[in-house]
Design a protein around this nucleic acid. Structure first.
Length: 231
DNA sequence: GCATTAACGCACG
DNA sequence: CGTGCGTTAATGC
């Protein structure tokens, strides 16, 4: 599937100093630290900053006035930008950003960021790359929400989560700072209890293991196979 | 039937 | 001790 590729890496064609250049560009902007669960961007504020994630995991959310629900937009990890809305003239909106783990981010004012983009070609490319990728993910995610049943959506989330935030340990994959089941439910458009039962089923089949702190994928192929079988 | 929701007891951190 | 988790039964589509 499309998710096995390391699509989130920056273009391999970039020079090896790309990361250093980026850090140099951003090093004078304030480095903000947040505790797990803290609010990085509050709802209802005009987006004024771009955030670059130095470490940790972040969740972006949208709330809708007519429904009480707050829906999850996406999960972002180290090396990604969030809040690109700030690059446009967007008004105060219903977007918010929350820390899913201990997080540190560079906070770059929109004006400064736009100016940096004008000066540095590689930053431009990086931003375009990020935006296209995010759009791609959104589209795919949207299609999957339509095509998949709830268990498949949860499995798809687990696969995405592992490919974004997992570390390889031998033949297994480990994700630390495992989300709560309620958060997984939000991200996969299912119910909390549905997540609970599926995770326990997968554990019984020895496909994954998990505690509240981490998840281990014992057999990635079997997990992927879950997407293929109907129920 | 498949999935979300309520409800409740349990236990992890 | 709180809140996150696991399970079952009820309800809805």
């Amino acid at each position: 599937m499309s998710h096995s590729s390391l699509a989130h890496a920056f273009p391999p064609s970039s020079t090896s100093t790309t990361g250093d250049n980026l850090n140099e560009l951003l090093e004078n902007f304030p480095l903000k630290n947040f505790k797990k669960g803290a609010s990085i961007v509050k709802e209802g504020q005009t987006p004024k900053h771009i955030y670059y994630i130095q470490s940790g995991k972040v969740l972006t959310l949208t709330s809708y006035p007519n429904s009480e629900k707050v829906l999850a937009n996406g999960l972002f990890v180290k090396g990604e930008f969030v809040n690109f809305q700030a690059l446009t003239n967007s008004q105060p909106d219903n977007h918010s950003v929350k820390a899913l783990s201990k997080v540190s981010v560079r906070q770059i004012p929109t004006i400064a960021f736009l100016s940096l983009m004008r000066q540095h070609q590689f930053l431009n490319q990086m931003v375009i790359h990020n935006i296209v990728r995010q759009l791609d993910q959104k589209t795919t995610h949207c299609h999957q929400t339509v095509l998949y049943n709830s268990n498949q959506r949860i499995v798809q989330f687990l696969l995405d989560y592992v490919s974004k935030a997992g570390e390889r340990v031998g033949y297994e994959w480990v994700v630390r700072d495992f989300l709560t089941q309620a958060q997984i439910a939000l991200l996969s458009n299912t119910g909390r209890q549905t997540v609970s039962t599926l995770l326990n089923d997968l554990r019984r089949e020895n496909i994954i293991h998990f505690t509240r702190k981490y998840m281990v994928v014992r057999d990635l192929d079997l997990l992927k196979a879950y997407l293929l079988k109907a129920q």
